[in-house]
Amino acid sequence: MAFTKITEQPSLYNDLEKKSIREILEDINTEDQKVALATRKAIPQIEKLVSEIVPRMKQGGRIFYMGAGTSGRLGVLDASEIPPTFGMPKTLVIGLIAGGDIALRNPVENAEDDMERGWQELQEHNVNEKDVVIGIAASGTTPYVIGAMREARKHGILTGSITSNPDSPMAAEADIPIEMIVGPEYVTGSSRMKSGTGQKMILNMITTSVMIQLGRVKGNKMVNMQLSNQKLVDRGTRMIIEELGLDYEHAKTLLLMHGSVKKAVDAYKNASSI
Rank of each mutant, 00 (worst) to 15 (best):
T208L: 06
D266G: 02
E47M: 06
E26T: 13
E109G: 10
Q199W: 12
G160F: 02
E151L: 11
M201A: 10
R216P: 06
S209M: 12
I206Q: 03
K130D: 10
S209N: 11
G61L: 09
L227Y: 04
L92F: 00
M180K: 00
K58F: 00
T237W: 01
N224E: 14
M57P: 11
G160W: 03
G196L: 10
K130N: 15
H258C: 09
N110G: 05
A42E: 08
A111K: 13
M257C: 10
A264R: 02
M193D: 07
S190V: 04
L92S: 05
V182G: 04
E129T: 15
K130C: 09
S71N: 05
V265K: 02
L25M: 13
T30I: 04
D15P: 03
R153K: 15
I136T: 12
D101T: 13
M225S: 09
D27L: 10
A38D: 01
G99T: 13
I21F: 09
I63W: 04
K130V: 10
M201G: 03
T30K: 11
S209C: 11
G69F: 05
K200H: 05
G67K: 01
P89L: 08
M211T: 08
M57E: 03
D234Q: 11
M239E: 15
I212R: 03
V127C: 07
S168Q: 07
V261G: 08
D167Q: 12
T159R: 08
T141A: 14
V223G: 06
T253P: 01
S11V: 04
V261A: 05
Y13T: 04
E173D: 09
A103P: 14
G118H: 08
L246Q: 03
E116F: 12
K18L: 11
T7N: 12
D131V: 14
H258D: 11
K5L: 02
Y144A: 12
N106T: 15
P83H: 01
P107L: 10
L203P: 09
G219E: 15
E151K: 15
S168W: 03
V35A: 01
L25E: 00
G219L: 09
Y268K: 05
E116G: 05
M57G: 07
K263H: 13
Q59H: 04
K200F: 11
N126Q: 15
I102H: 09
T159F: 02
I241H: 04
R62Q: 08
V133S: 07
P44D: 12
Q33M: 09
I21A: 12
D113Y: 14
V187K: 11
E179N: 06
N29K: 11
M201I: 15
I178G: 09
D167S: 13
M115Q: 10
R105Y: 13
M205D: 12
Y248D: 02
R192D: 13
A251R: 04
I136Y: 05
S51C: 01
L232H: 02
G245N: 06
L255W: 00
K19E: 10
D27I: 08
L122N: 13
S190A: 14
I6V: 15
I94V: 15
V217N: 07
L254V: 08
K263V: 14
V261L: 06
V217K: 03
F86Q: 09
G118M: 08
V223H: 03
